[in-house]
Amino acid sequence: MESIADGDSTAGFFAVIDSDGTMVGGMRVHGPHLTPDEIAGFQPWIGTAGEAQLRAELVERIPLGVVETKGAWSRREPRIPGVGALLARAIPHAAWLLDARYVFGASPLHCLDIYRATAAQVPAEVSAVAYPDERYVTVPVWWDRDDLSTAAPDQHELIVAEREQLVAARKRSDGPGPT
């Protein structure tokens, strides 16, 4: 906690707390970033055939704000249904809270459906890599805070409702913020 509390390395942290007050999931958010090379999730593509395309996408989006999600996790036993979907919905909120338009992530294939349900897009021109090791096939994913049109209807509805709650909470706590 001490290594992230000052905000220098981690701009935000989402925690999922169960009804007993136990943390059962979480995710870090970094950024907004100024260059592709400071985005940890971009590093696995350096030296691959997809590096130039992915770097171009990052360079194009960085002026509009790019944050990165890292280290999403949820408790394995006992499994709590919905934690993954809740963390995936937090991703577009991260962009909004940090006043960035885009969120970049590196997703293993087994998580893609849950991310796509929250409007994540996979660039077709960038090949998958083995990351963090050869057990995983990982692809880059993008969320656009301003375009949730590809989100699953149920997840889109929840994202909108949660955003309204965040707006109301922000107005109560410190006045105007992103809308």
Rank of each mutant, 00 (worst) to 15 (best):
M1F: 12
E2C: 07
S3H: 12
I4L: 06
D6H: 15
D8E: 13
D8A: 14
T10W: 03
F14V: 15
I17P: 00
D18Q: 14
D20V: 10
D20N: 12
G21R: 15
G21S: 08
G21W: 13
M23V: 13
M23K: 09
V24R: 13
V24L: 05
V29Y: 03
V29G: 00
H30D: 01
G31Q: 01
P32A: 09
H33T: 04
T35R: 14
T35G: 04
D37I: 14
I39M: 09
A40T: 13
G41H: 05
P44M: 09
W45K: 00
I46S: 13
G47A: 08
G47V: 06
A49I: 12
A52Q: 13
A56H: 09
A56C: 04
A56N: 08
L58Q: 06
P63N: 14
V66C: 05
V66N: 03
V66W: 01
K70M: 03
W73H: 07
W73D: 01
R76T: 13
P78I: 11
R79V: 05
R79F: 06
P81E: 12
G82P: 06
V83W: 06
G84F: 06
A85M: 15
L86C: 14
L87C: 04
L87A: 01
A88M: 03
A88T: 06
R89E: 00
H93M: 12
A95I: 08
L98H: 07
L98K: 15
L98G: 08
D99S: 11
D99T: 14
R101V: 02
V103Q: 04
V103R: 01
F104P: 02
S107V: 06
S107F: 11
S107G: 10
P108E: 08
H110E: 12
H110S: 10
C111V: 15
L112V: 11
Y115Q: 08
R116W: 00
A120Q: 01
Q121L: 04
P123C: 12
P123I: 13
A124T: 15
E125T: 15
E125M: 10
V126P: 05
S127W: 08
A128T: 11
A128P: 06
V129L: 00
Y131T: 06
Y131Q: 04
P132R: 10
R135G: 03
Y136D: 04
V141A: 10
V141D: 01
W143Q: 01
R145D: 02
D146K: 09
S149R: 08
T150S: 06
T150I: 10
A151R: 09
P153G: 07
D154N: 14
H156S: 06
L158A: 10
L158Y: 02
I159N: 00
I159Y: 01
V160N: 06
V160A: 12
V160H: 04
A161T: 11
E162T: 15
E162F: 05
R163K: 15
R163W: 05
Q165K: 13
Q165L: 09
V167W: 02
V167P: 01
A169M: 12
R170F: 00
R170Y: 07
R170Q: 09
S173K: 11
G175L: 04
P176D: 09
G177D: 04
P178A: 10
T179D: 08
T179W: 09
